[in-house]
């Protein structure tokens, strides 16, 4: 039997966050279920008459040539990498932004410097032509 006594419900107490996140976990499951249910119904109700031509992959009327998985160009990798670096930097900045009201002026400047260094990286990428879509 599951014991619920370890779950106090007062904000700020240990375990409260978990209760909040239980809500989020549930809504994610509900979301997935809302997609799963119609699809399951569709599979049950819908006709199932597979034939060779029907299960071919779509290719504007002609047969698919070669493998479907084409090799991507390196461009995608560079953009994903630039995104990753910006993402990490901005995540660092979020606690700073939360504390903003209680920061001294020099602390604000430090945060701006942090972003400025990042901007330098963007300028480098730009000058190197890494931002061109070729």
């Amino acid at each position: 039997m599951i014991d619920f006594t370890g779950w106090p419900a007062n904000r700020g107490q240990r375990g409260f966050l978990t209760l909040d996140w239980l809500f989020i976990g549930t809504i994610l499951v509900v979301g997935a279920g809302m997609a799963a249910l119609p699809i399951a119904l569709n599979v049950i109700i819908g006709p199932r008459k597979p034939n060779k031509t029907k299960s071919e992959t779509y290719e504007c009327g002609i047969e698919t040539v070669g493998e479907a998985w084409v090799q991507l160009k390196g461009q995608y990798y560079i953009f994903a990498l630039i995104f990753l670096i910006f993402d990490i930097e901005v995540v660092f900045m979020f606690p700073w932004a939360v504390a903003y009201d209680r920061l001294e002026f020099y602390m604000v400047l430090e945060g701006v410097l942090f972003i400025l260094i990042l901007a330098g990286g963007l300028v480098y990428a730009w000058r190197k032509g890494a931002l061109e879509w070729v």
Binding site: P38, I39, L41, N42, V43, I45, G46, P47, R48, K49, P50, K54, S55, E56, T57, Y58
Partner: peptide, 9 residues
């Protein structure tokens, strides 16, 4: 919902 749910080969 009454259409066939196809999974390509």
């Amino acid at each position: 919902i009454t259409k066939e749910f196809l999974i390509p080969r």
